[in-house]
Write a protein that binds this DNA or RNA. Structure first.
Length: 205
DNA sequence: AAACGAGGTTCCT
DNA sequence: AGGAACCTCGTTT
C-alpha cells in the first residue's frame, strides 16, 4: 500500500461543485507485471464527450477512455495495452451506474464519493494524486505540478505521466495546460479537451 | 513562428 | 547500458 486513502473534492460557499473521489494507489509491487491477476470489468456508455469506455476492478474505477461511437475497439485496445495480462470481461450492468454518476453533476455527492484505484508507477501515482486536487473549472500547468511534487525541472516527465493517466476526466488531466496557456496535447484529442473545459466552465458556480 | 537542447521517467533493444 | 518517446519549457534563429 503506497499511501492512505483520503478524500479529495471541494464544496461549500465560494467553491466549485466537483466530483468527489476517494482513491487508493496500486503500485507495481501490488500487481504482477502486465496486470496479471487483475480482473477488469468494462462497458461502453454514451457521455457528453463521446462514447466512454469504463473499466472497473473490485477496488474501484480503474480506467476511463473515449472512443468514437463506431470504433469501439481502439479505446479497448488502448486500455488493454496498459495491462496486457489482466482478464477483461464485458459487464455493462456493472459499469452503467458508474457512467451515470461520473457524467451527471446532480449525482456528485460528498457523502458518496466515487471509489477510484490508481494503477501505475510511484511517479505516475504522485502526479495523478496532484491532479485530483485541481478543482473543477480551474486550470494548472505541467510545471506547476512538477513544482508540487518537488521536482521543478520535471515538467516534461509530468507531461509523460499525465498522458498515461488511465482514468481521464475523473482524474482531470484535461485541466493541465502549457505554461503559456496553450492547450498543448491530449491523448484523446485536443478537441475533446476543449469540450471538457467548456462543459466545466458552464457548470462553475 | 519555428527549430533546438535540456529535462525526468518509462519502455524498448 | 543505451536510445527513443512523451499531453514541456526556455532560449535562440
Amino acid at each position: 500500500m503506497l499511501d492512505a486513502t483520503f478524500e479529495v473534492g471541494l464544496s461549500g460557499p465560494g467553491r466549485l461543485h466537483d466530483l468527489f473521489v476517494t482513491h487508493e494507489a496500486m503500485s507495481p509491487g501490488e500487481w504482477k507485471s502486465g496486470g496479471e491477476g487483475l480482473a477488469i470489468s468494462y462497458g461502453f456508455h454514451p457521455s457528453p464527450f463521446g462514447m466512454a469506455l469504463i473499466m472497473a476492478t473490485e477496488r474501484g474505477l480503474a480506467g476511463l477512455a473515449f472512443d468514437d461511437a463506431d470504433a469501439r475497439k481502439s479505446a479497448l485496445a488502448d486500455m488493454q495495452s496498459r495491462w496486457p495480462k489482466a482478464t477483461y470481461v464485458e459487464d455493462t450492468a456493472r459499469t452503467a451506474p458508474l457512467a451515470r454518476r461520473i457524467f451527471d453533476p446532480k449525482l456528485w455527492r460528498a457523502d458518496q464519493p466515487l471509489r477510484v484505484v490508481l494503477i501505475g508507477t510511484d511517479w505516475e501515482v504522485r502526479v495523478w494524486e496532484t491532479l485530483l486536487k485541481v478543482p473543477m473549472g480551474r486550470l494548472t500547468t505541467y510545471s506547476d505540478i512538477a513544482a508540487k511534487v518537488c521536482m521543478p525541472a520535471a515538467a516534461r516527465a509530468v507531461g509523460a505521466a499525465v498522458g498515461k493517466n488511465p482514468i481521464c476526466f475523473v482524474v482531470p488531466c484535461h485541466r493541465v495546460v502549457g505554461k503559456s496557456g496553450a492547450l498543448t496535447g491530449y491523448h484523446w484529442g485536443i478537441t475533446r479537451k476543449q469540450a471538457m473545459l467548456g462543459w466545466e466552465a458552464g457548470r462553475a458556480i
